[in-house]
């Protein structure tokens, strides 16, 4: 190697090229690793079956009614296990739970057999779900006509059709009518805001308990802290209360 100093500009150009190469390599490596990770993560999640629908049971062969506070329940009030669900008709996670319950034939196995009383308390997350309050009120209006539970199931079943779209009220009312509600009576009930105060009170009551997510489930006053599938955790907890070993 010669010791003769090279012209300044040439030396600088060599230094710049050398200094940028590790940067390009590192940037490229970061991009490849990051994007591969993202693709693997995203592609691992199963695609939702779009047709997964919730069958609507027109009749529940068990006690059905309202608690002294006005919340709808199904199942014997003296059942050994009391489940309280705080939920929102527009919440996808609540719909998933409703679907899992239907697929597992939960009503026949636990409600109609007298093992469980299920109480539904409305917690409409109005900040993120535009129709949460409206659907909760529709369900109560349907309750006035004696078709609370079929409409309850129909609202969850049709959630994918009316959530996040404009002018969704007719679709919601249509789902309720298909489940057995009378449209005229439903509209009168909604126009008169018959249950607005009750749903507001239900919301306030849930918030005053410190609840801020749906579904939130209590079994005999113990809160279920689900980390995976809500339904399987719920079933395990109910079976434990019933003294059933899996």
């Amino acid at each position: 190697m010669s010791n003769t100093p090279k012209p300044r500009q040439g030396r600088q150009r060599v230094r710049e090229k050398r200094s940028l190469l590790p940067f390009y390599l590192l940037l490229g490596l970061g991009g490849i690793v990051g994007l591969t990770f993202v693709f693997i993560q995203a592609l691992q999640a199963p695609v939702a079956p779009p047709s997964a629908s919730i069958p609507i049971r027109p009749v529940i062969n068990a006690a059905v009614g309202q608690t002294s506070e006005g919340y709808w329940y199904k199942g014997d009030p003296n059942a050994p296990v009391k489940v309280i669900e705080f939920a929102d008709f527009e919440c996808p996670a609540c719909r998933q739970l409703e679907l899992d319950l239907a697929n597992a034939n939960f009503d026949a196995e636990y409600i109609e057999s007298g093992k469980v009383q299920w109480i539904y308390r409305e917690l409409p997350l109005r900040g993120i779900h535009e129709m949460a309050q409206y659907t909760a009120e529709v369900s109560r209006c349907a309750g006035d006509q004696g078709v609370y539970w079929p409409v309850h199931m129909a609202l969850y079943d049709s959630q994918l059709q009316w959530t996040n779209i404009k002018n969704s009220q007719p679709l919601i009312l249509d789902a309720a009518v298909k489940a057995g509600a009378n449209l005229g009576m439903l509209e009168d009930c909604m126009d008169a805001q018959t249950h607005t105060a009750a749903i507001n009170a239900s919301y306030d009551s849930a918030r005053s308990l410190g609840l801020d997510q749906t579904p939130t489930i209590f079994i005999n006053d113990d809160r279920i802290n689900s980390t995976g599938n809500f339904y399987s955790d719920l079933k395990v907890a109910i079976d434990a209360k019933l003294g059933v070993t899996p």
Binding site: A45, C91, A93, C94, I128, D212, P215, T216, T227
Partner: peptide, 16 residues
């Protein structure tokens, strides 16, 4: 990707 390919990441909960 989540937007293009809605998954069954059926959210565990709403509102948290």
């Amino acid at each position: 990707i989540h937007r293009l390919r809605p998954t069954q990441s059926a959210p565990l909960v709403c509102g948290v």
